[in-house]
Design a protein around this nucleic acid. Sequence first.
DNA 1: ACCAAGGTTTAATTCCCTTT
DNA 2: AAAGGGAATTAAACCTTGGT
Length: 395
Amino acid sequence: MNTEVSSIITQLGLSQYLGAFVDEGFDTWEALLDIQESDLLPDQNAPERPPTAYVRFSNKTREGLKDQNITFAEKAKLVGENWQTLAPGEKAEYESRAKAEKDQYRLQLEAYQKTDNHRQYSQYLSEFKQEAKRNGKRRDYERQKLEPRPPGYGSSISSRVEARSGVGASVTSKEFDKCRVNQIPAISEPTLKRIHNHISSFQTHLANGRVKPGDDHSQLPPLTLEHRKERDNSPESALMLSVARASRIDKARLGGQAQTTSRATHQLRRHEVVPTLPDDLQGGLRSRTSKQSTSSMPATEESTVSPSLSRGTTTTNTQGPQPNGPTANTKGTIGYGTSSLRSLSFGRLANKHTMFRVRLIGVSKWKLSTQWKVMYCLGPSGVRRSLPTGAGLTE
DNA sequence: ACCAAGGTTTAATTCCCTTT
DNA sequence: AAAGGGAATTAAACCTTGGT
């Protein structure tokens, strides 16, 4: 057995899962992180387990709540309450039906266990375990391979470091890609939490174009289908799409990579938003605009819509480089999902504070999951230096 | 020409919550 | 682990740009 797995799992306080993991053949750290749902698919031919009394009640109740404009979570609570206050007689009906179905299921299962299908599945399982034990590998042959992505597909944003724009940032993205955070730095100051929450909510709402300059950012409207349609059908959106098409055609002619049209909508979203930070951080937000010219496709129409573009001229930033400080916000790279967080750093505090992301490791429904979280860390900028001792950045 | 680093898409996955 | 529906988030590999 792999001692690395054992020690990491123990370190993470997940030792109760160790036996099951190893038993299933996931006995290297890489294999563990790579468990997919498809690895754990149940027997397709086995009879389906019937719904429980509550689930059946829940389905029926939800049917009646369909038209009500409440959130998913609120519905679940409502259903739960209704179940608790359901008349005993009605409840008994659900329960007796569930019991009958369960009994029937049990019979079906017993019958199924005598079939060839079941025998094959059992054999497959035991073969996998044997195979796994023999060479320490998981059942790769079982994995459903995704369609290969067309050229030009995205970059692994999530594996890059955030702290680059801070003074003295010393970790390159390549270096950071090789790093693994296997322990979560303890950061719990209320202020930092507040900032973190603020930023997290922003990156969501900015990305959706829900927030506009001057909005009261403490009261965010819920995203509706209408909102999205409105945004996507707006004249601005149409303009941006045409810009993108022009650019795409041009690039294709030049032998470059074709741009996809939807890129324009992202540009649109990005440029209509002015992010707001807590007062004590105002003026401290920096974006890469302050160092480099802006995006590869500026929102300025003239500079990009011309059909006679040639390679290298598409990057014109008619505004010139943004100075450091507050004004950088207006054209900042904030506003698009995870990538927005990537370039965030608080310049004013760069010598003391750095925001970055760490990988959190936990157990979710069916796999050992890792997640990137924004953290706000004390210490000199530069990721490795700013991590508390023992934070577990390893290469 | 090369390096470093930002930028991009879709599909897959997770999350929200309750109960048995 | 299952249901309910949909938003939020992430992984994946390569392209583009700025700078040297």
